[in-house]
């Protein structure tokens, strides 16, 4: 009897300890998700107040070419942004050696991660300026007339991808570095005894044993990229100033469209439907990633 009471007490203590975080999660994450799901079936007035509108928002969504365009942009950005992963592996391998100034390099790579995204986007905006930007100035020294990077539909999305890769590289790199340092040195010693050179060691030992890390990083970056907003908001703006940019059709992401509908034109119900679609896409892609991992991830 007492043992059973002890067990109950123990369980209650455990719940008491997770209660603060569980409450926070419930109030600030789960409840809003449920509310948003409900709102996606409602129509809102300009200043709040909503009424049930059935599937109207979803019907409109299917016929809205802007939604399709935003999805294409978001998925292109996400796929192109995956380049960051092999890049991070290469740089992590280069930094995972005894070398002078390794700490300095690691700091330099990590700096963009801890810099405010808004500040990052502002600086890149100046760099990308067609007439007065540093990038086009350097190109002009080589006799090249650079484009208006973020105002030209042909380059705008790629310009965004470059910023995305640059700012996430440090984060991915640190995780890969940690993954590499968790690989036991004996494997490399044994391989060296068998006559494997550094390149072969990298492909035969480092890469397979890094696959769990790579899996984690790929899941995190896909989810992050699909939710891209802050960069677009600062680079292109929102509302009128964004729409006067001829490249905006190539810059508008799903979350940026959500923002326009929720906060600029005040169609909150429709905006909720847009993010519900995004939620489903993220869930589906993450599920696919978890299924696929069985084929390529090796847990040591």
């Amino acid at each position: 009897m007492t043992r059973r009471r002890d067990r109950i007490t123990e369980a209650l203590w455990a719940y008491a300890f997770i209660a603060p975080i569980a409450l926070g999660l419930g109030v600030f994450y789960l409840w809003p998700v449920l509310q948003t799901a409900y709102f996606s079936f409602t129509e809102w007035g300009a200043f709040g107040g909503h009424e049930w509108s059935g599937a109207d928002n979803y019907v409109r969504l299917i016929h809205d070419s802007e939604v399709g365009r935003a999805l294409v942009n978001t998925i292109s950005y996400t796929v192109l942004g995956l380049v960051s992963i092999p890049l991070a592996v290469v740089f992590a391998a280069l930094l995972n050696r005894k070398m002078r100034g390794a700490g300095v390099y690691r700091t330099l790579f990590f700096l963009p991660v801890v810099t405010m995204p808004v500040a990052v986007a502002m600086v890149w905006r100046w760099l990308y300026n067609g007439d007065y930007g540093l990038i086009n100035y350097l190109l002009s020294l080589a006799g090249i007339d650079g484009p208006n990077w973020i105002a030209d539909p042909a380059t705008a999305l790629y310009a965004l991808v470059v910023i995305g890769i640059w700012s996430s590289l440090g984060y991915n790199l640190i995780i890969f570095l940690a993954g590499m340092q968790a690989i036991p040195a004996e494997y490399y010693e044994a391989a060296a005894l068998d006559g494997a050179g550094p390149v072969r060691q990298f492909f035969r030992i480092t890469l397979p044993l890094l696959s769990p890390t790579a899996f984690f990083v790929s899941v995190i970056s896909v989810i992050g990229s699909l939710q891209l907003f802050d960069l677009v908001f600062v680079i292109a703006g929102s509302g009128a100033s964004a729409r006067a940019n001829p490249a905006y059709p190539r810059l508008q992401t799903v979350v940026a469209l959500f923002y326009d509908r929720a906060f600029v034109t005040n169609e909150r119900g429709y905006a909720a439907a847009i993010v519900m679609v995004l939620l489903l896409i993220i869930a589906a892609l993450t599920l696919v990633q978890f299924r696929l991992q069985r084929r390529w991830v090796h847990y040591a």
Partner: peptide, 8 residues
């Protein structure tokens, strides 16, 4: 052009 006026 519009691109230039978007940048500056």
């Amino acid at each position: 052009d519009l691109k230039t006026m978007t940048d500056t």
